[in-house]
Design a protein around this nucleic acid. Structure first.
Length: 469
DNA sequence: TGAAATGTTGGGGCG
DNA sequence: ACGCCCCAACATTTC
């Protein structure tokens, strides 16, 4: 037992020092013991995937640096860890920023109840959303089910998101001697895969700011038009930073508002609105990640073709734009949003595989794997969500490739075996004349797969299957 | 934040 | 000059 009262700042998905309400509260309460708990015990089926663990390994290291190397790390059941800390030290308060995954809400509620009873000041804050999902409701008090009114009425006419706060000065830190090291947490896989994975990312609070500034400097001015062009970096790539809270949505919102307002900034802000919408859907539908929002989808006869699923996961479907996207995911922990829609449509409609298979794979591979966004997006593309794509909306991977990767830069980057084929045939090599393939040194079925499905036939099959609902 | 099928229109070639 | 056909270009409908 030390004499000094300690305020625990429990970092979770808010791995930053600026605009962090919990850190400010802990600082105001006294000496700060900043901690992170890897709680796989409570997480159940949705414990962090492989890519997320790699990301958080680096994010914790940089957070530790930003906290004068005083971050204490633990592994195991969060209630047990916190209870133990309260026994060991004179803890006056515990402060955290809220998470919205159902399992975390349940766990945190229990922690708050149990530790409050012991006379500890336990408080949670909003550090991850622009508007709380329980506040953003329709006039009749029920949650929104459609994005447009949710955003236009619920978000834009609601209170302005609060302004970002500076990092508190002169924090008095305390470190637990029994803290684990980041390596002890075992977040990095044995495979070498994770090393190249992180090479394109600066996983730190500063890296998040840098990424935002880069986007503001050369991406946002043509965002509305160019965000769909796959080869160009006209998207913000802020999603993993937002997910883990290396930057707050308030910071992104208000920084965008400082730019000249036009249709580009409006479109970008609405993407933050989609994030809010996903969280609202999850908050009001706890089973969103597991269960069709529309019950009639429960009887949909999904195929159980392991081979096709595997080909999709490995980027070996024989359909170039699909394979390029899936390999981008594997190689970089990220996928351009337009391609996410294309590969999602392909999995669910052309392959008739259960959207939850896609959800699981993305959960494991994406740096920005986010329970709310991932589940809401997969239900959207499958058509099983509330405000979902209609069943007949089936993307044609050949047309999408030609339209959004017109010079083939993106597709060739991830499919070097198709490097030499002229762009005209790049997105449908199976239709290319023999001499064209020969000239490009492509033997279909050897250098690059023949398509695992016929696009026209599988489209008709999907239309029939979905129509029967 | 779709694609394909079908319908409509209008200019130009041609007898 | 006129009617006819063809077909691109665009619009609408359907899944």
């Amino acid at each position: 037992m030390t004499e000094k009262p300690l305020a625990i700042c429990w970092f979770r998905q808010d791995l930053r020092t600026t605009d962090n309400p919990a850190l400010r509260a802990a600082h105001a309460a006294g000496t700060v013991l900043p901690i992170y708990i890897l709680d796989d015990d409570s997480a159940d089926t949705w414990k962090m995937g492989g890519a997320s663990r790699v990301w958080i390994h680096h994010a914790l290291n940089s957070l530790d640096e930003n906290l004068d190397e005083s971050l204490s790390l633990y592994s195991g059941n969060a209630l047990k860890v916190l209870t133990k800390l309260c026994k060991k030290y004179n803890v006056s308060g515990i402060y955290w920023n809220r998470c919205y995954e159902p399992w975390r809400i349940k766990r945190d509620k229990e922690i708050k109840e149990k530790l409050s009873k012991k006379g500890i000041d336990v408080k949670s804050f909003n550090g991850s959303l622009l508007w709380e999902p329980w506040e953003n409701l329709k006039e009749d008090g029920t949650p929104y089910k459609v994005f447009t009114p949710f955003y236009k009425k619920g978000c834009l006419q609601a209170s302005i998101p609060k302004s970002p706060q500076f990092r508190p000065r002169d924090i008095d830190f305390f470190t637990d001697k029994e803290s684990l090291s980041t390596d002890d947490l075992g977040l990095l896989p044995d495979k070498e895969w994770h090393k190249s994975l992180v090479s394109e990312w600066d996983i730190s609070e500063q890296g998040a700011k840098k990424q935002m500034k880069k986007f503001f400097a050369d991406g946002v001015s043509s965002y509305k038009e160019c965000r769909n062009i796959l080869s160009q970096e006209h998207v913000s790539r802020l999603s993993p930073y937002l997910h883990f809270g290396l930057i707050s949505p308030q910071t992104v919102w208000h920084s965008t508002k400082k730019l000249t307002q036009d249709s580009n900034t409006m479109t970008f802000l609405s993407e933050l609105g989609w994030r809010e919408f996903s969280y609202s859907l999850l908050y009001h539908n706890n089973a969103l990640p597991e269960k069709n929002l529309q019950e009639k989808f429960d009887k949909f006869p999904w195929e159980k073709n392991k081979q096709n699923l595997h080909a999709w996961q490995q980027g070996k479907t024989g359909i170039p734009i699909i394979d390029a996207g899936m390999r981008e995911l594997w190689q970089t922990g990220y996928m351009h949003n337009r391609v996410r829609m294309i590969v999602g449509s392909f999995l669910v409609k052309n392959l008739l595989l259960d959207w939850r298979e896609g959800e699981k794979w993305f959960w494991d591979c994406l740096f920005d794997a986010d329970l709310a966004n991932n589940a809401a997006s997969w239900q959207w593309i499958a058509g099983s969500g509330a405000d979902a794509a209609p069943y007949f909306r089936i993307f044609n991977p050949v047309l999408q490739g030609k339209r959004f990767d017109p010079d083939g830069t993106y597709t060739r980057k991830y499919l070097p075996e198709l490097e030499k084929i002229e762009t005209k045939w790049l997105f449908e090599p199976w239709n290319a004349p023999g001499d064209i393939l020969k000239k490009a040194h492509i033997r279909l079925g050897m250098d690059y797969p023949t398509p695992i499905v016929d696009l026209a036939i599988s489209r008709e099959r999907a239309l029939a299957a979905f129509k029967s609902l």
